[in-house]
């Protein structure tokens, strides 16, 4: 692992390209079973406003680790990442104002109602009540959450909880939205509604990172796709450019080919 040291690592001298700018990001964990385990091995990409950037990869590819670093919940071992020009390491509080993060790991509070939960996060973002309440009304209307307004988290279905999470992530109107496996556990209807919402948000000019292991979601939704496996991006581009570059007609076939190539090259380097 490449453990950079000294002030230059943290000073964030890099310049911003896209809304999200990631360069050579690595993350290593210590693990009793696997020892020093590299979850991310030098990931770089840029995502632009009005774009859905898809991260596609099997379980354990490093998607969640990457997105946790972007949301400043984890710190990278080396490399840089900026969101709207703010460095995730040196300006974590500013980064968190720029993003809305929805993940299978970001649960809702059992003992709070949908309204209280969204209000709580809105207030944490420093939005005054005068501005917050009308905004919340619109948000609840748009996400069809009016009937669960006073329902406690513990009493909600998975779909309801996911709606509350999205409302929480949108309440401060951030330029960047991160969805990590957001459709896991949702029925087809709710999943489709969620994808429609994501597409709408893109149309409003948001920069969206959408991570999933379901290929059809990526094909339907994403403007650019990065295929991740074993901590690295195997290939990256639009759906058409990926198929063309690798001379493949079927995306699923391409995915399996790239993944097995990565496995083979890793075994060879060992």
């Amino acid at each position: 692992m490449n453990d950079l040291s000294g002030a230059e690592f943290y000073s964030g001298k890099e310049t911003a390209f896209g809304m999200i700018h990631v360069r050579d990001l690595t993350k290593a964990y210590a693990d009793l079973e696997r020892g020093a385990f590299v979850a991310l091995a030098g990931v770089s990409f840029d995502a632009l406003p009005g774009q859905i950037y898809g991260l596609l990869g099997p379980n354990g590819a490093g998607k969640t680790t990457l997105l946790r670093i972007l949301s400043t919940v984890l710190q990278p071992t080396s490399g840089t990442a900026t969101i709207n020009g703010c460095n995730v390491l040196s300006q974590p509080a500013l980064v968190r104002r720029q993003i809305g993060f929805v993940s299978t790991n970001t649960a809702v509070y059992d003992r709070m109602t949908a309204w209280e939960m969204v209000e709580y996060f809105g207030r944490l973002y420093g939005i005054g009540k005068d501005e917050l309440y009308p905004r919340m009304e619109r948000l609840f209307e748009r996400l069809q959450m009016k009937e669960i307004r006073n329902v406690l988290g513990a009493k909600m279905s998975t779909g309801m909880k996911q709606k509350v999470s999205i409302a929480r992530a949108l309440v401060h109107d951030p330029p960047v939205l991160i969805f990590d496996e957001a459709t896991v556990g949702l029925d087809v209807l709710v999943a489709r509604a969620l994808m429609n919402t994501v597409a709408e948000l893109r149309d409003q000019g948001k920069c969206i990172v959408y991570s999933t292991h379901i290929m059809r979601e990526v094909e339907r939704l994403c403007d650019r796709i990065a295929i991740m496996h074993r901590g690295g991006i195997v290939s990256e581009g639009t759906l058409a450019s990926l198929l063309e570059e690798h001379q493949e007609n079927d995306f699923e076939e391409l995915f399996f080919r790239l993944i097995s190539q990565r496995d083979e090259s890793l075994i060879a380097t060992r």
């Binding site: 949301s71 400043t72 919940v73 968190r96 104002r97 993060f101 790991n105 970001t106 649960a107 059992d110």
Partner: peptide, 14 residues
Amino acid sequence: ERGTLETLLCSPAR
């Protein structure tokens, strides 16, 4: 355990 800590950690609160 309930998974709400991560929700709070990615909020703007330090």
